[in-house]
Every structure is written in C-alpha cells, then in structure tokens.
Amino acid sequence: MLKKWQDWLGKRSWWTLATILAVFWTLGWFGIQAAIRPSGASWGLLVGAVVGGIFYGGFMALIFRRQQAKYGGPSTSRAIEMAVREGRLPEGAEPEIWLPLLDRKKRTERRMVWVGPIEFALFTALCVFLIVTEPSVWSWWVATVLFVGLGIWVPLWSIRRAHRIDALIAELKAQETDRSSF
C-alpha cells in the first residue's frame, strides 16, 4: 500500500505534491492545536494552520523534487530506492549511471548513522523541556517516546541500508568487470 502511494506521488507534479502536503499539514496542525488548547479551535488558528501548510507544502515539495533530481529524476530515483529496499538491481542497470548514484546514497546513509541520533536527541530534549513547562499535555509525552524510538531506529536502519548498497555496488562492479573482459 505504501509503495503504491509513493509511486503515485512520485508521478505527480510538484504542485500536486505541495497541495497534498499542505492539506495534511493544515489538518494535522489544526487538529492537534484544537485538541490541546483549552479554548479549542478558532478562525485565527485555522488561518495560521493554512498559511503554515502552504509554506510547508511548497518547501517540502521543492526539497523532494530536488532530491529526485540529484538521483537522475523521478523514475531513476524510484528505481534506486526500490533496488536498495529489495537488495537487488533492476534489469539493465548501467554501472556508469548507477555507481555514482549509489555511492551518493551510501554516503547519505552513513551520515544518518550519526546525524539521526543527534537530531532526535534534540527533538527529545525539546519535548522534555515542554513536559517540564506543561506536564498536563499528553502529546509531549507521546512525542518524547516517539523521538527516543526514532533515535534508536534510524541508525540501525541506515546501517542496514548502507550494507545493502554496498552489496549493490559490488554487484555493479562485477558486472562492469565482466563487460570489460569481453
């Protein structure tokens, strides 16, 4: 299900992606704020959520498209992601194209091994601060547990992905050696 959703999103224009992200941001932010504020929902809160959603949707859509462009466009980016996820190369993967892209992906995953825990430690510290200032808000407790879990999970996931990428690179280099021997 998630793969189909990602494929569907990857084929859409950046405006469509920006709109979807803006709607999710607006609904999520408005819903959370309306639930935790003693005064409930207001028009000002809705307007703030819509403006924030527009900025968030546009910014994130540009970042997603920039990332796809770094990996050879939407179709190549999806193919690389699927190869890393499944641990095998698609038919016709050309070493000249794929080796530099997989090397970039590997560097990113290696970086996430140490950046991920730092990032989520900072988010956890923010949540702890928010719990200390307002302990009655249950969402800070949930967010703290979530960020601690992500701080543990992200480096493990990145190490696993880096090993898969190493195997794909080795397979591509073997293909390249086989081609050059003919």
Rank of each mutant, 00 (worst) to 15 (best):
L2K: 09
W8C: 09
G10E: 13
R12W: 00
S13F: 01
T16R: 02
L17M: 14
A18W: 05
T19D: 08
I20D: 10
I20K: 06
A22V: 06
W25I: 02
T26P: 04
L27Y: 01
L27I: 14
W29Y: 09
W29R: 11
F30N: 10
G31Y: 00
G31V: 02
I32A: 14
Q33A: 08
A35I: 05
I36T: 15
R37M: 14
G40Y: 00
G40D: 10
G40C: 05
G40M: 02
G44L: 09
L45Y: 01
L46P: 08
V51T: 10
G52K: 03
G57N: 06
A61I: 05
L62C: 11
R66P: 00
K70Y: 02
P74H: 08
P74M: 04
T76I: 11
T76R: 10
T76L: 15
T76F: 00
E86A: 09
R88M: 10
L89F: 07
P90Q: 13
P90T: 14
E96W: 01
L102E: 11
R104S: 09
K105M: 12
R107N: 14
E109Q: 12
E109V: 00
W114L: 10
V115Q: 12
P117S: 12
L122T: 12
F123W: 03
C127A: 15
V128M: 07
V128C: 04
I131F: 02
W138H: 02
W138A: 12
A143Q: 11
V145T: 14
V148I: 15
L150T: 08
V154P: 03
L156G: 12
L156T: 08
L156C: 03
I159Q: 15
H163K: 15
R164K: 15
R164T: 14
A167N: 12
L168P: 10
E171F: 00
K173C: 02
Q175F: 01
T177K: 11
T177E: 15
D178K: 12
